[in-house]
Write a protein that binds this DNA or RNA. Structure first.
Lengths: 188, 188
DNA sequence: TCCAATAGTATCAATGCGATATATATAGTG
DNA sequence: CACTATATATATCGCATTGATACTATTGGA
């Protein structure tokens, strides 16, 4: 899904500024499955304006730059509906954590332990944050997405808690390599 | 993690050609957390060569272009170890499926049902494929990553199976609004 | 026979990310 | 009180990356 379609979708939930769109993809339920930078949002909104898929009204503000509130047009709603008619592409997941695990023969054994411990804490915090979201008012769809996020986070957490020992053997194997590595101060 | 570091990590598992690197990130355990196109892999390998982090030997082949097999150098291994010393960035997950769910007021109610049904099948197929991987020979780290993938896939599958009904209310609500403007307040 | 898949390397336009610039207000901290 | 961080808000720029495509040749299946 390109950023233009993402913007159409967000605006289908209500009017918003570029800044608010950025906040929504960085926090809240949208953060579970999307991401976008200012460098993609503002040009996207500009193009959507040109295409007549959104409208924009400038709201003057005291001592602040004008707020540009974007709204979906009828054509924009139609375009969104059309885009969602296509079968969704498979999920794309990027994880530096899993990469570090897979390449663990190139890191110190105790580093692997730390990595997993930290990850467990992050999962716990993420779950708490998502459960906090559920306390507020939400649409059924938004609730569904957040609960989906909680379910997968909990599964990952449980896996790490029950399997963190299974990499010790591999880490020990890599220890010999690491000792040799430490002698060479080439890094940094 | 940029593509250069990803290539270093992959080469730390064994020598490979650009084509093989692409296959590894598209299939196998690496596909669970990474992605890379030819347009990023070949330039990355070129830069790594310039930096002396990898070496390359051309293997002549019958009736095919030369195969360029890349190997990690000592410096390359050091650079990888150094990169992995940094705390991993948080995961980035993109899901057009979850987007479609969140924007479901812009799609037909029966479409939501289809979307979830199809997703359930995809999860089942993915789990089967990952379990197939476990049958072969694997390093402990690779096994860990694949089992992690299975655990999260199963959690997502179970969530969809047990919660697929919870969006029917929302979809029905949307349909009712289309048919008749006033309706009784929705009950959870 | 013909099409799809496999095995390889490689490039390019368009897209998008990450950082940064520009202003100002408020809140927290030493 | 000064200083720093955070929040509000728009916008641009260089660079990394994607997705598609080009080129060539073999193998396997319908």
């Amino acid at each position: 899904m390109d950023i233009k379609t993402l913007c159409l979708g967000i605006l289908s939930l209500g009017d918003a500024t570029g800044y608010e769109i950025k906040k929504m993809v960085a926090e809240g339920s949208l953060s579970l499955f999307s991401e976008a930078s200012y460098g993609s949002i503002y040009p996207a909104l500009g193009k959507l304006m040109e295409q007549g898929l959104v409208t924009c009204r400038a709201m003057a503000q005291d001592k602040r730059p004008d707020k540009k509130v974007y709204s979906l047009t009828e054509a924009g709603r139609g375009e969104l509906t059309h885009s969602l008619r296509k079968d969704p592409d498979p999920d794309k997941n990027r994880s530096e954590f899993l990469a570090a695990i897979l390449f663990c023969e190139s890191v110190a054994p105790e580093r692997v332990t730390t990595l997993i411990q930290d990850r467990i804490v992050e999962h716990e915090e993420k779950i708490t944050a998502l459960e906090g979201l559920l306390a507020g008012e939400m649409t059924p769809a938004s609730r569904f997405v957040v609960e989906y996020g909680i379910a997968t986070q909990k599964a990952a957490l449980k896996f790490l808690q029950t399997h963190q020992g299974s990499l010790v053997g591999a880490a020990a194997k890599g220890a010999a390599i690491e000792l040799k590595e430490v002698d060479t101060p080439a890094a940094k």
